[in-house]
Design a protein around this nucleic acid. Structure first.
Length: 207
DNA sequence: CGTTGGATTGGCT
DNA sequence: GCCAATCCAACGC
């Protein structure tokens, strides 16, 4: 599995909707305090933009989302549902408030450690969801604001980008507003994607 | 200060 | 399919 060079700051300095599909196939490397190295290959992400009612940034900067309004290429980690952490990559210029949620990945290196973090052995389920991904990689509150471009705790490398022809676009998962924006991107037929079903547009009925 | 509900998950009916 | 778990940020008064 090819890691390649780190993604440079300029890669992240674009709108989340532009960065998101290009994150597929990239390698997220996590270095634990004891030196253990974990690596996963991103297969599912979602874009959140400044004028997007589903985004934490929609109502302006707060203590929780302040990292979203900082410079691009940093990790925005938030706590939710009283027990889960989710990780985003901050995009666009500082002050904008846009980011890409990391939703699922294919485990590449350190599977045993990830399995221990998850209390689960099934490789397909280790990182198949935003909170599962952070649990497998031991990403929590203290990683909020970590620099992915210059930092050592976590970083992103070029990997082998998923060709556009193999990128699927759907509505985002688990949101109640902004469901009309098809900003979830995932790799075609990936066995490592999350089971999450995209939000249905308002007024829709099952057939 | 009190209330509400969340970019989820896993277990149970 | 349904719902509890479990914290706390955001918002209204």
């Amino acid at each position: 599995m090819k890691l390649g060079p780190r993604l440079p700051r300029r890669f992240f300095a674009r709108p989340a909707t532009a960065v998101a599909p290009e994150l597929l196939g990239r390698i997220l490397v996590r270095r634990l305090e004891d030196g253990t190295r974990l690596a996963v290959r991103l297969v599912e992400v979602e874009a959140y933009e400044p004028d997007d009612p589903a985004s934490h940034a929609f109502r302006g900067a707060t203590p929780r989302n302040r990292v979203m309004f900082g410079p691009p290429g940093h990790l925005y980690v938030y706590f939710t549902y009283g027990m889960h952490f989710c990780a985003n990559v901050v995009t666009s210029a500082a002050g904008r408030g846009s980011a890409v949620l990391l939703r699922a990945a294919e485990p590449i290196q350190g599977l045993e450690v990830m399995a221990r973090h998850r209390g689960l052995a099934d490789v397909r389920r280790l990182c198949a969801g935003p909170a599962r991904l952070t649990q497998a990689l031991a990403i929590e509150r203290s990683m909020d604001g970590a620099d992915l471009v210059l930092g050592t705790q976590a970083f992103l490398t070029a990997g082998e980008p998923t060709p556009p022809a193999r990128v699927i676009r759907t509505a985002r998962v688990g949101i109640r507003v902004g469901v009309d924006r098809p900003w979830r991107f995932l790799e075609l037929e990936s066995p490592f994607a999350s089971p999450g079903r995209p939000a249905a547009p308002k007024g829709s009925r099952r057939s």
